[in-house]
Design a protein around this nucleic acid. Structure first.
Length: 834
RNA sequence: GCGAGAGUGGCGGAAUUGGUAGACGCACUGGACUUAGAAUCCAGCGGGGUGACCUGUGCGAGUUCAAAUCUCGCCUCUCGCACCA
């Protein structure tokens, strides 16, 4: 390009000026009185941890592109932002800095909000919410009470991590190698009363609706389905020898019933105490139980737990055979799942096989594969497939699949079992012995028992005048000022519930509150909810694929059933974005590979970061941060900037349309127009599919072609040429605007237009202009590329055949061989098989 | 361990879903411009071979005229696992 006096690209000045302009004109403030179709796009709100990290930048940039794209397509777009403000880190920080969690949290919110604004994200800030605000959690407390009335909330015991020396409950995160993270004392399990949400009541619906979530990624759906874990099988009763008592087990493999050689109980099973009464092995058994109970939750449910067992000396009777079967205690049987007891079939279950080998228990094969490929008397490993029954009384020779039903029938006749469906999903324990969370609105009265706080007394506010103690314990448990209250029913002195709710509760309904964030009369205004919900597009990290999304789905159904919402599912479409990595690993302080968005904004500006993060990888994949890569994005932006500012004179002229009609243009300009419209079509299409990286590379190609024509055609007064370039540049600015909104708005002004590009319509390409009139068809011989021919777009097989057979390269490869077959894929491949 | 993904040049990635592998960008190399550097512009760039060609999408088989894409069997990495959010 010719050297010419140009405006410098001062991104800091340009970006802050346009941000100010958008805000002053309330460009992204959304109201409900609009004739346009409604569209709700939401990104998962952040925890106010202190500063924005690159994962946030990525998440919010993706959402912003969609919000801006939809707005330009004529939608009334709701695009809100808020703060998931309760949680453990605030308590830790408060402890460290001797301050109140609220102070720390709100300071973080202030700072992070500035950072988000500086990124030029098109949020409607008038709808901002923070979940730690009483005006938010008040409604959550009300939901809790309504759920209690409905029987969706109940109380039961559960096991927590407990540190004896700190006298406090620990989160899994606070347990390091089975030890307390503060004092390194061994962590033990402790039983505690707590509140539970009956998510299992919704298991069937949560599962069946998975199939209606057709715009969710398959991987998330299958993770959710597996998490809910429906399995059909049988409940089987084993009567205790010499006792009225019985052990009930659940099995998905009733067909293996004749292969049972032992039964295992969880150490928490209620029968254990009875079995051990006056038992000679009582002491050893109790030692075993103590050891199992010491296994911290993180190891018990995960990692490689070494299978361990203990023989009780007691037996049960097989329900369909006259055989006595030994009862073991086992560390791998969980009281939380099924009945807390399992039947051991070593021949057909891998875990049972290991267990039987370890304790020299018999291994009885009852199913063999049809091809007889295993030796039933000497198994090398458990055979877990279906097959043909053996050693099973009247069922021998039948298929194991058919036998399931038949054995259940036998059990039903004998009144020793029945068909059963179980779920892996457990009820959601929401009690936390923490300070910085939503107080549970309950009063424990010595006379009346459990009494909900009356609605008029809500919210139960979290006191701002107390501090977390040096062991990290919640002051609510010890503060009379907080817990000493009189019972609303009988006026007796009661004790306020001092536990708070799991922070997942707040994030399970925030998306709905954005539709009426300031409403003081109700949690959710019906009319607003009806207009906006469900969220049309939800975007967030894949790490939330199960818990947050499942809880939100559950909560939506609960809110429907207690009369607040009219929808069944919260999120119509879901996009899960990958992580931002540096040097192949997740960014973390401990690894020292953190890239600070603030520094990047200072060095390159927001548009460059946005562009790079969208260009460097498709959104659902992990993104490798590259300091060189971001230079490339910055270079592209400047290249675009020079393209406009360096040719401002020519681009400011208004060219009449008949100057650049396709049929009068020379080939090179025709090519530019064609490319322009192909790019419009491609970018629009890619945006619909979230293929931001390829949309951007298409725009790069267009810019490269424009430079090509400007550099090679030196005739500065060629009006047709500049008319074509102006069409391309104008569309380019519009197409770029969702990605780099500040740059686009600035170039729009430079070209003499007014207002923000975000108020313009997104371009629609002309298919006629975009159509290629000549195409290249690859010629293959036996599937190998041997040449190519240039043909008019509509060329038929015969034309291509003539050209192909006359090509000397092709002739060389088919010479002296008979043509067996010709495969022709129009517009692509012409394959000669010889 | 269980569940779910991913694997393509030196690097990030593309490939119309079975049809010319490597678009676009980074890095690198050469050239132009410049007193010099920066910036910019132009060209080259999977590996082997002077060449025609051969070879190549984690590994090993298979289906097909044709496989990065489909099937089977492995390997490696990442995420989630219920009190981190």
């Amino acid at each position: 390009m010719e050297p010419k006096e140009q405006l410098t690209y001062n991104f800091e000045e340009i970006e802050t000026r346009h941000q100010k302009n958008w805000e002053e004109n309330a460009l992204f403030t959304t109201t409900e009185d609009s004739d346009k179709p409604f569209y709700y796009v939401l990104e998962m709100f952040p925890y106010p941890s202190g500063r924005i990290h690159m994962g946030h930048v990525r998440n919010y940039t993706i959402g912003d592109v969609i919000a801006r794209f939809k707005k330009m397509n004529g939608f009334n777009v709701l695009h809100p932002m808020g703060w998931d403000a309760f949680g453990l880190p605030a308590e830790n920080a408060a402890l460290k800095h001797k301050t109140h969690p609220a102070k720390w949290t709100y300071e973080n919110i202030d700072y992070m909000k500035k950072q988000l604004r500086r990124l030029g994200l098109s949020y409607d800030w008038s709808r901002e919410i923070a979940t730690c605000d009483p005006s938010y959690y008040k409604w959550e407390q009300l939901f809790f009470i309504k759920m209690l009335e409905k029987g969706i909330v109940y109380r039961k015991k559960s096991t927590v991590n407990w540190c004896e020396s700190c006298q406090t409950v620990l989160a899994n995160e606070q347990v390091e190698d089975g030890k307390c993270w503060r004092c390194s004392e061994e962590v033990i399990n402790k039983e505690l009363d707590g509140w539970f949400f009956k998510i299992t009541d919704y298991a069937e619906e949560l599962l069946s609706y998975c199939d209606k979530l057709t715009n969710w990624p398959d991987k998330v759906i299958s993770m959710q389905k597996n998490w809910i874990g429906k399995s059909a099988g049988a409940g089987v009763v084993f009567n205790l020898v010499g006792s009225e008592k019985k052990i009930e087990v659940f099995t998905t493999r009733p067909d293996t019933l004749y292969g049972v050689t032992f039964v295992c109980l969880s150490v928490d099973h209620p029968l254990v105490e009875i079995l051990l009464k006056d038992n000679p092995v009582k002491n050893e058994a109790e030692e075993f139980i103590r050891n199992v109970k010491l296994i911290p939750a993180e190891i018990k449910f995960g990692e490689t737990l070494e299978k361990d067992g203990f023989f009780t000396g007691k037996y049960v009777v097989h329900p369909l055979m006259d055989v006595e079967i030994p009862i073991y205690l086992a560390n791998y049987v969980l009281i939380e799942y099924g009945t807390g007891a399992v039947m051991g079939v070593p021949a057909h279950d891998t875990r049972d096989f290991q267990f039987a080998k370890k304790y020299s228990l018999p291994i009885k094969t009852v199913i063999i594969p049809e091809d007889n490929s295993i030796d039933p008397d000497n198994l090398a490993d458990a055979y877990t497939e279906n097959g043909i029954m053996i050693n099973s009384n009247g069922f021998n020779g039948l298929s194991s699949i058919d036998v399931k039903e038949k054995i259940i029938n036998c059990l039903e006749k004998a009144k020793l079992g029945n068909k059963e469906i179980t779920f892996r999903l457990r009820d959601w324990g929401i009690s936390r012995q923490r300070f910085w969370g939503t107080p549970i609105p309950i009063i424990h009265c010595p006379n009346c028992g459990i009494v909900p706080v009356p609605e008029k007394d809500l919210p139960v506010k979290l006191p701002l005048n107390m501090e977390i103690d040096e062991k990290g314990r919640s002051p609510l448990h010890t503060s009379e000022e907080f817990y000493k209250v009189s019972c609303p029913l009988c006026n007796a002195t009661g004790r306020r519930e001092t536990d708070t709710m799991d922070t997942f509760v707040e994030s399970s309904w925030y998306f709905a509150r954005y539709t009426c964030p300031q409403d003081e009369n109700t949690a959710l205004a019906k009319e607003s909810a009806r207009k906006w919900l469900p969220v049309n597009q939800y975007i967030g990290g894949i790490e939330h694929a199960i818990l947050h999304l499942l809880y939100s789905r559950f909560f939506t159904k609960v809110l429907r059933d207690i009369g607040y919402l009219e929808i069944d599912e919260p999120f119509e479409k879901l996009m899960t974005q990958g992580m931002v990595l540096k040097d192949g690993a997740k960014m973390s302080k401990s690894k020292g590979n953190v890239v600070d968005p603030d520094l990047m904004i200072k060095k390159y500006g927001s548009d460059t970061i946005r562009l790079f993060i969208l260009f460097a990888a498709p959104p659902e994949r992990d993104l490798e941060w590259s300091d060189h890569g971001i230079d490339g994005s910055h270079r592209f932006i400047q290249r675009v900037w020079r393209l406009v500012t360096g040719n401002i004179e020519e681009l400011s002229v208004n060219y009449p349309e008949d100057l650049f009609k396709m049929d009068i243009l020379p080939g090179n300009l025709k090519k530019i127009r064609r490319k322009t419209h192909q790019t419009i079509i491609k970018v629009r299409d890619d945006l619909e599919k979230f293929h931001f990286n390829t949309a951007i590379s298409a725009l790069m190609e267009l810019v490269n072609e424009l430079y090509g024509v400007i550099n090679t055609e030196n005739n500065k007064v060629d009006k047709a040429k500049w008319a074509v370039i102006k069409e391309a540049v104008t569309n380019m600015i519009l197409l770029l605007s969702p990605f780099v909104p500040h740059l686009s708005d600035e170039m729009w002004l430079i070209l003499g237009r007014t207002g923000s590009v975000s108020n313009q319509a997104f371009p629609v390409g002309d298919k006629e202009i975009a159509r290629e009139d000549e195409i290249i068809v690859a010629i293959q011989v036996n599937g190998k590329l041997r040449g190519e021919v240039n043909v008019p777009a509509g060329a038929d097989e015969n034309e291509i055949k003539t050209l192909a057979l006359s090509d000397p390269r092709i002739q060389k490869h088919i010479e002296g061989k008979a043509i067996k077959k010709i495969i022709f894929v129009p517009g692509r491949i012409f394959n000669i098989v010889v």
